[in-house]
């Protein structure tokens, strides 16, 4: 399973203090400004439920691998969304289903705020659901 980008996140976040983690997450959101999330995809159907911020996630399957893109109207949550979609894009269905909440815990963002970590766990479950749905379709 190729989780290179995910490992990069884990290692980078490990070395940062809380203040710098925020900066890092905001930078992630800024990095994606060049390839903005398509406005036409900001629909009710693509909205993830249960988030305090609005989060949209779209999914694509190419050659048996799943790719995700996401967006939030809040910058910090947007950074977290990108962390998730960058981490877990390019995996097969089996690999995605094998991901566990420990993958989110290892990012160690619970120290930032517990609710954000809970949100990321919800995001993981959401992308697992999207890949299952694609499989069933």
């Amino acid at each position: 399973m190729s989780l290179e980008r995910y490992q990069e996140f884990v290692e980078a976040l490990e070395e940062l203090d809380d203040e710098m983690r925020f900066e890092y997450i905001l930078d992630l959101a800024r990095e994606h400004k060049d390839a903005p999330f398509p406005e036409e995809a900001m629909t009710r159907e693509n909205l993830m439920h249960g988030c305090q911020s609005r989060v949209w996630i779209i999914h694509e399957e190419k050659a048996g691998r799943h790719y995700f893109r996401g967006h939030s109207d809040g910058a910090i949550v947007n950074g977290l969304v990108h962390m998730m979609t960058d981490s877990f894009s390019g995996l097969t269905s089996e690999e995605i289903q094998a991901l566990t909440l420990d993958h989110v815990r290892k990012l160690n963002l619970g120290a930032l705020t517990t609710q954000r970590q809970v949100g990321m766990m919800a995001m993981l479950k959401h992308i697992q659901k999207l890949s299952r749905q694609a499989e069933a379709a």
Partner: peptide, 13 residues
């Protein structure tokens, strides 16, 4: 310059 949730998160810290 910022979404309400970003304000809330940064103020929290």
């Amino acid at each position: 310059f910022a979404h309400a949730n970003d304000i809330g998160l940064i103020l929290d810290r």
